[in-house]
Protein backbone atom coordinates (compact mmCIF):
# COMPACT_ATOMS: atom_id res chain seq x y z
CA UNK A 1 0.00 0.00 0.00
CA UNK A 2 2.68 2.46 1.13
CA UNK A 3 4.80 1.44 -1.86
CA UNK A 4 1.99 2.28 -4.27
CA UNK A 5 1.41 5.69 -2.76
CA UNK A 6 5.10 6.47 -2.92
CA UNK A 7 5.34 5.49 -6.55
CA UNK A 8 2.29 7.48 -7.42
CA UNK A 9 3.75 10.53 -5.67
CA UNK A 10 7.05 10.23 -7.56
CA UNK A 11 5.23 9.77 -10.86
CA UNK A 12 3.15 12.88 -10.29
CA UNK A 13 6.19 14.93 -9.31
CA UNK A 14 7.98 13.95 -12.48
CA UNK A 15 4.92 14.74 -14.56
CA UNK A 16 4.61 18.14 -12.89
CA UNK A 17 8.27 18.90 -13.61
CA UNK A 18 7.67 17.98 -17.22
CA UNK A 19 4.70 20.31 -17.40
CA UNK A 20 6.50 23.12 -15.61
CA UNK A 21 8.52 24.40 -18.57
CA UNK A 22 5.48 24.35 -20.85
CA UNK A 23 3.46 26.30 -18.29
CA UNK A 24 6.25 28.85 -17.97
CA UNK A 25 6.41 29.30 -21.75
CA UNK A 26 2.65 29.78 -21.92
CA UNK A 27 2.71 32.30 -19.07
CA UNK A 28 5.55 34.25 -20.69
CA UNK A 29 3.67 34.30 -23.96
CA UNK A 30 0.47 35.52 -22.29
CA UNK A 31 2.41 38.24 -20.46
CA UNK A 32 4.05 39.36 -23.71
CA UNK A 33 0.67 39.46 -25.42
CA UNK A 34 -0.95 41.39 -22.59
CA UNK A 35 1.77 44.05 -22.47
CA UNK A 36 2.50 44.18 -26.20
CA UNK A 37 -1.03 44.30 -27.59
CA UNK A 38 -1.78 47.32 -25.39
CA UNK A 39 0.27 49.35 -27.87
CA UNK A 40 -2.31 48.83 -30.60
CA UNK A 41 -4.94 50.72 -28.62
CA UNK A 42 -3.13 53.93 -29.63
CA UNK A 43 -0.84 52.96 -32.52
CA UNK A 44 -2.30 51.21 -35.60
CA UNK A 45 -0.70 47.86 -36.39
CA UNK A 46 0.27 49.06 -39.89
CA UNK A 47 2.21 52.04 -38.43
CA UNK A 48 4.04 49.66 -36.14
CA UNK A 49 4.96 46.92 -38.60
CA UNK A 50 5.24 49.11 -41.69
CA UNK A 51 6.66 52.36 -40.29
CA UNK A 52 10.25 53.19 -41.20
CA UNK A 53 10.99 55.64 -38.38
CA UNK A 54 11.83 54.62 -34.79
CA UNK A 55 11.69 57.71 -32.56
CA UNK A 56 10.20 56.33 -29.35
CA UNK A 57 10.76 59.36 -27.11
CA UNK A 58 9.85 62.13 -29.55
CA UNK A 59 6.71 64.19 -29.45
CA UNK A 60 4.72 62.66 -31.15
CA UNK A 61 6.55 59.31 -30.90
CA UNK A 62 7.11 57.12 -33.97
CA UNK A 63 7.09 53.36 -33.46
CA UNK A 64 8.02 52.09 -36.94
CA UNK A 65 9.61 48.74 -36.34
CA UNK A 66 10.40 47.84 -39.96
CA UNK A 67 14.06 48.99 -39.85
CA UNK A 68 14.56 46.89 -36.71
CA UNK A 69 13.00 43.75 -38.22
CA UNK A 70 15.04 44.17 -41.40
CA UNK A 71 18.14 44.91 -39.31
CA UNK A 72 17.72 41.66 -37.41
CA UNK A 73 17.09 39.78 -40.67
CA UNK A 74 20.15 41.19 -42.45
CA UNK A 75 22.49 40.44 -39.55
CA UNK A 76 21.04 36.94 -39.08
CA UNK A 77 21.08 36.10 -42.78
CA UNK A 78 24.67 37.26 -43.05
CA UNK A 79 25.67 35.16 -40.06
CA UNK A 80 24.00 32.07 -41.53
CA UNK A 81 25.58 32.55 -44.96
CA UNK A 82 28.98 32.75 -43.27
CA UNK A 83 28.45 30.02 -40.69
CA UNK A 84 26.65 27.25 -42.59
CA UNK A 85 29.28 26.24 -45.19
CA UNK A 86 32.10 26.36 -42.66
CA UNK A 87 30.06 24.47 -40.06
CA UNK A 88 28.98 21.70 -42.44
CA UNK A 89 32.52 21.29 -43.76
CA UNK A 90 33.82 21.17 -40.23
CA UNK A 91 31.19 18.60 -39.19
CA UNK A 92 32.09 16.46 -42.23
CA UNK A 93 35.76 16.65 -41.32
CA UNK A 94 35.14 15.73 -37.70
CA UNK A 95 32.80 12.84 -38.38
CA UNK A 96 34.37 11.36 -41.56
CA UNK A 97 38.00 12.32 -41.93
CA UNK A 98 39.64 13.28 -38.63
CA UNK A 99 41.07 10.33 -36.77
CA UNK A 100 41.23 9.64 -33.02
CA UNK A 101 42.91 12.49 -31.20
CA UNK A 102 42.22 15.13 -33.88
CA UNK A 103 38.52 14.36 -33.65
CA UNK A 104 38.50 14.83 -29.89
CA UNK A 105 40.58 18.01 -30.03
CA UNK A 106 38.27 19.54 -32.67
CA UNK A 107 35.12 18.62 -30.79
CA UNK A 108 36.47 20.12 -27.58
CA UNK A 109 37.60 23.24 -29.43
CA UNK A 110 34.17 23.82 -30.94
CA UNK A 111 32.50 23.30 -27.58
CA UNK A 112 34.91 25.87 -26.13
CA UNK A 113 33.80 28.35 -28.79
CA UNK A 114 30.25 27.97 -27.44
CA UNK A 115 31.54 28.67 -23.94
CA UNK A 116 32.95 32.13 -24.75
CA UNK A 117 30.58 34.71 -23.24
CA UNK A 118 28.90 36.83 -25.91
CA UNK A 119 30.10 40.12 -24.38
CA UNK A 120 33.68 38.96 -24.85
CA UNK A 121 33.01 38.24 -28.51
CA UNK A 122 31.31 41.63 -28.78
CA UNK A 123 34.30 43.30 -27.25
CA UNK A 124 36.63 41.57 -29.71
CA UNK A 125 34.35 42.65 -32.52
CA UNK A 126 34.46 46.27 -31.39
CA UNK A 127 38.18 46.46 -30.69
CA UNK A 128 39.60 44.25 -33.47
CA UNK A 129 37.07 43.37 -36.16
CA UNK A 130 35.35 46.78 -36.60
CA UNK A 131 38.56 48.79 -37.30
CA UNK A 132 39.68 46.04 -39.66
CA UNK A 133 36.41 46.08 -41.62
CA UNK A 134 36.46 49.88 -41.75
CA UNK A 135 39.96 49.76 -43.25
CA UNK A 136 39.32 46.83 -45.60
CA UNK A 137 36.19 48.29 -47.21
CA UNK A 138 37.16 51.96 -46.76
CA UNK A 139 33.97 52.69 -44.81
CA UNK A 140 33.05 55.70 -42.68
CA UNK A 141 32.58 53.34 -39.73
CA UNK A 142 33.38 49.71 -38.97
CA UNK A 143 30.25 49.22 -36.86
CA UNK A 144 28.19 47.51 -39.57
CA UNK A 145 25.77 44.64 -40.16
CA UNK A 146 28.68 42.58 -41.55
CA UNK A 147 30.66 43.00 -38.33
CA UNK A 148 27.64 41.73 -36.41
CA UNK A 149 27.19 38.83 -38.84
CA UNK A 150 30.78 37.67 -38.43
CA UNK A 151 30.57 37.73 -34.63
CA UNK A 152 27.20 35.95 -34.71
CA UNK A 153 28.53 33.36 -37.17
CA UNK A 154 31.09 32.43 -34.52
CA UNK A 155 28.26 31.97 -32.03
CA UNK A 156 26.08 29.91 -34.36
CA UNK A 157 28.89 27.58 -35.44
CA UNK A 158 29.03 25.35 -32.33
CA UNK A 159 25.28 24.67 -32.54
CA UNK A 160 25.33 23.92 -36.26
CA UNK A 161 28.49 21.79 -36.13
CA UNK A 162 27.41 19.56 -33.27
CA UNK A 163 23.89 18.90 -34.57
CA UNK A 164 25.14 18.32 -38.12
CA UNK A 165 27.73 15.93 -36.77
CA UNK A 166 25.04 14.00 -34.88
CA UNK A 167 23.00 13.80 -38.08
CA UNK A 168 25.99 12.49 -40.04
CA UNK A 169 26.78 9.93 -37.34
CA UNK A 170 23.18 8.69 -37.55
CA UNK A 171 23.57 7.75 -41.24
CA UNK A 172 23.92 3.92 -41.29
CA UNK A 173 27.41 2.55 -41.92
CA UNK A 174 26.09 0.48 -44.80
CA UNK A 175 25.45 3.62 -46.90
CA UNK A 176 29.11 4.58 -46.75
CA UNK A 177 30.35 1.05 -47.46
CA UNK A 178 27.96 0.58 -50.35
CA UNK A 179 29.01 3.87 -51.94
CA UNK A 180 32.71 3.10 -51.60
CA UNK A 181 32.20 -0.47 -52.86
CA UNK A 182 30.53 0.90 -55.99
CA UNK A 183 33.75 2.77 -56.74
CA UNK A 184 32.81 6.24 -55.43
CA UNK A 185 35.67 8.38 -54.14
CA UNK A 186 35.48 9.57 -50.56
CA UNK A 187 34.35 13.04 -51.63
CA UNK A 188 31.67 11.58 -53.93
CA UNK A 189 30.49 9.40 -51.07
CA UNK A 190 30.24 12.41 -48.73
CA UNK A 191 28.65 14.85 -51.16
CA UNK A 192 26.25 12.50 -52.97
CA UNK A 193 25.34 10.00 -50.25
CA UNK A 194 26.06 11.27 -46.78
CA UNK A 195 24.87 14.88 -47.06
CA UNK A 196 21.57 14.00 -48.78
CA UNK A 197 20.94 11.23 -46.25
CA UNK A 198 21.55 13.60 -43.34
CA UNK A 199 19.68 16.52 -44.94
CA UNK A 200 16.78 16.80 -42.47
CA UNK A 201 19.20 16.86 -39.54
CA UNK A 202 21.36 19.48 -41.22
CA UNK A 203 18.34 21.67 -41.95
CA UNK A 204 17.33 21.39 -38.31
CA UNK A 205 20.87 22.38 -37.31
CA UNK A 206 20.66 25.47 -39.49
CA UNK A 207 17.25 26.41 -38.06
CA UNK A 208 18.51 26.11 -34.51
CA UNK A 209 21.59 28.13 -35.49
CA UNK A 210 19.31 30.89 -36.80
CA UNK A 211 17.31 30.74 -33.59
CA UNK A 212 20.49 31.17 -31.57
CA UNK A 213 21.59 34.11 -33.70
CA UNK A 214 18.36 36.11 -33.95
CA UNK A 215 17.94 36.18 -30.17
CA UNK A 216 21.50 37.29 -29.44
CA UNK A 217 21.68 40.76 -27.93
CA UNK A 218 24.80 41.95 -26.21
CA UNK A 219 27.41 41.32 -28.89
CA UNK A 220 25.12 42.69 -31.59
CA UNK A 221 24.44 45.85 -29.65
CA UNK A 222 28.17 46.43 -29.31
CA UNK A 223 29.18 45.98 -32.95
CA UNK A 224 26.31 46.93 -35.27
CA UNK A 225 26.13 50.66 -34.56
CA UNK A 226 22.39 50.57 -33.74
CA UNK A 227 21.25 53.10 -36.34
CA UNK A 228 17.55 52.52 -37.08
CA UNK A 229 17.68 52.81 -40.88
CA UNK A 230 16.37 50.36 -43.44
CA UNK A 231 19.55 48.50 -44.46
CA UNK A 232 20.58 48.74 -48.12
CA UNK A 233 23.83 46.82 -47.79
CA UNK A 234 25.65 44.74 -45.21
CA UNK A 235 28.35 47.41 -44.94
CA UNK A 236 25.97 49.77 -43.17
CA UNK A 237 25.09 50.19 -39.49
CA UNK A 238 21.82 48.51 -38.51
CA UNK A 239 19.70 48.27 -35.37
CA UNK A 240 18.30 44.89 -34.33
CA UNK A 241 15.12 44.16 -32.37
CA UNK A 242 17.01 42.59 -29.47
CA UNK A 243 19.41 45.52 -29.10
CA UNK A 244 16.47 47.93 -29.12
CA UNK A 245 14.69 46.13 -26.29
CA UNK A 246 17.87 45.83 -24.23
CA UNK A 247 18.94 49.42 -24.74
CA UNK A 248 15.59 51.06 -24.11
CA UNK A 249 13.76 48.93 -21.56
CA UNK A 250 15.70 50.35 -18.60
CA UNK A 251 14.27 53.85 -18.94
CA UNK A 252 10.92 53.23 -20.61
CA UNK A 253 8.21 54.41 -18.23
CA UNK A 254 6.04 51.45 -17.15
CA UNK A 255 2.66 51.65 -18.85
CA UNK A 256 3.78 54.14 -21.52
CA UNK A 257 3.42 53.52 -25.25
CA UNK A 258 7.19 53.13 -25.47
CA UNK A 259 7.06 50.34 -22.87
CA UNK A 260 4.24 48.58 -24.74
CA UNK A 261 6.09 49.02 -28.04
CA UNK A 262 9.14 47.20 -26.64
CA UNK A 263 6.90 44.31 -25.58
CA UNK A 264 5.32 44.32 -29.04
CA UNK A 265 8.83 43.90 -30.48
CA UNK A 266 9.17 41.01 -28.04
CA UNK A 267 6.07 39.40 -29.59
CA UNK A 268 7.57 39.72 -33.08
CA UNK A 269 10.82 38.12 -31.88
CA UNK A 270 8.95 35.37 -30.06
CA UNK A 271 6.89 34.61 -33.16
CA UNK A 272 10.02 34.37 -35.33
CA UNK A 273 11.84 32.11 -32.83
CA UNK A 274 8.74 29.95 -32.45
CA UNK A 275 8.42 29.44 -36.21
CA UNK A 276 12.11 28.58 -36.52
CA UNK A 277 11.96 26.06 -33.71
CA UNK A 278 8.79 24.52 -35.10
CA UNK A 279 10.46 24.20 -38.52
CA UNK A 280 13.54 22.60 -36.94
CA UNK A 281 11.30 20.16 -35.09
CA UNK A 282 9.50 19.27 -38.27
CA UNK A 283 12.77 18.49 -40.06
CA UNK A 284 14.08 16.40 -37.15
CA UNK A 285 10.80 14.51 -37.08
CA UNK A 286 11.07 13.79 -40.80
CA UNK A 287 14.50 12.31 -40.21
CA UNK A 288 13.21 9.76 -37.72
CA UNK A 289 10.72 8.28 -40.16
Amino acid sequence: MWQRWRERFIEKTIAASGMFSIIVVILIFLFLLKEGLALFRTVPMTDFLGGDRWYPISEPPRFGVLPLILGSCVVTLGAIVLAVPVSIASALFISEIAAGWAKDALKTGIELLAAIPSVVLGFLGMAVLAPWIKYLFQLPTGLTALTGSIILALMAMPTIVSITEDALAAVPRGYREAALALGATRWQMMSRVLLPAARPGILAAVMLGIGRVIGETMAVMMVTGNAAVIPRSVLQPVRTMTATIAAEMGEAVRGSDHYFALFAIGIVLFAISFLLNAAADLFLHQERH
Binding site: W54, G225, A228, P237, R239
Partner: peptide, 11 residues
Protein backbone atom coordinates in the same frame (compact mmCIF):
# COMPACT_ATOMS: atom_id res chain seq x y z
CA UNK B 1 14.05 68.16 -34.85
CA UNK B 2 15.18 64.54 -34.66
CA UNK B 3 18.53 62.83 -34.61
CA UNK B 4 19.33 61.59 -38.11
CA UNK B 5 18.24 57.94 -38.34
CA UNK B 6 21.78 57.18 -39.60
CA UNK B 7 23.26 58.23 -36.24
CA UNK B 8 24.98 55.36 -34.47
CA UNK B 9 23.36 54.86 -31.07
CA UNK B 10 26.06 53.61 -28.76
CA UNK B 11 25.31 52.00 -25.41
Amino acid sequence: AEFAPEALLLP
